[in-house]
Amino acid sequence: MSGAPGGSPRDTSGGPVRPVVAWAFATVLFVALMVGGLGVVSLTTGRDVIAVADFGELVGTAAAAFAAAAFAGVLWMLLRRPQPSLWGAVGTAASAFLVYLAAVWIGGTAHTGDVVLAASVAGSLVTGGFALVVAGAGLLAGWGGILLVRSSGGRPRWPWEGRDEP
Rank of each mutant, 00 (worst) to 15 (best):
A122V: 07
G60H: 13
A135P: 04
L132Y: 13
F66A: 06
A110M: 14
S85I: 04
G108P: 10
W105M: 08
A4W: 12
L125C: 04
A32N: 08
D164S: 13
G142E: 06
A122N: 07
A102Q: 13
P16M: 10
T109F: 15
A4S: 14
E57K: 09
S2C: 03
A141Q: 02
L147Q: 09
T44C: 03
G162R: 12
V133Q: 01
A67Q: 02
S42N: 05
G136Y: 13
V59Y: 01
A69E: 08
L139D: 00
W160K: 09
P159Q: 10
T92W: 01
I50W: 10
E165L: 10
T45E: 11
M77I: 11
A68P: 06
L75P: 08
T109A: 13
S152T: 11
A24G: 09
L98F: 02
V17D: 09
G128D: 00
M77H: 11
V31I: 09
Y100V: 02
W158P: 04
A64W: 01
G46N: 07
F97L: 11
P156E: 12
M34L: 12
V133R: 01
T127R: 05
L79P: 10
A63M: 01
G113F: 03
F30D: 01
A141V: 04
T45P: 08
L29K: 07
S124E: 12
G145E: 13
A89R: 02
G91Q: 04
A72E: 03
R47T: 07
S85K: 05
G138V: 00
A118P: 07
A131E: 06
G128K: 04
S151V: 02
A4G: 05
A26R: 02
R155K: 06
W158T: 07
G128H: 04
F55V: 12
G56I: 00
V99P: 07
A137Q: 07
G128C: 02
A68Y: 00
S95G: 07
G7V: 03
G138A: 06
D54M: 03
F130W: 04
G162I: 01
L86G: 08
L78P: 10
G123C: 01
L38M: 09
W143M: 13
V52I: 10
S13H: 15
G129H: 10
I106M: 03
A89D: 00
A4M: 13
M34S: 14
V99S: 04
A64C: 05
S8D: 14
G39L: 08
A53T: 05
P159C: 09
G128P: 01
E57M: 09
L86N: 04
W160R: 14
V17Q: 12
G73Y: 00
R81F: 03
L139S: 01
W105N: 03
G73Q: 00
A63K: 00
G73P: 07
G153T: 09
L38N: 02
S152C: 03
W158H: 14
L38C: 00
V40H: 00
A51D: 15
E57T: 09
G142V: 09
Y100N: 03
F71V: 05
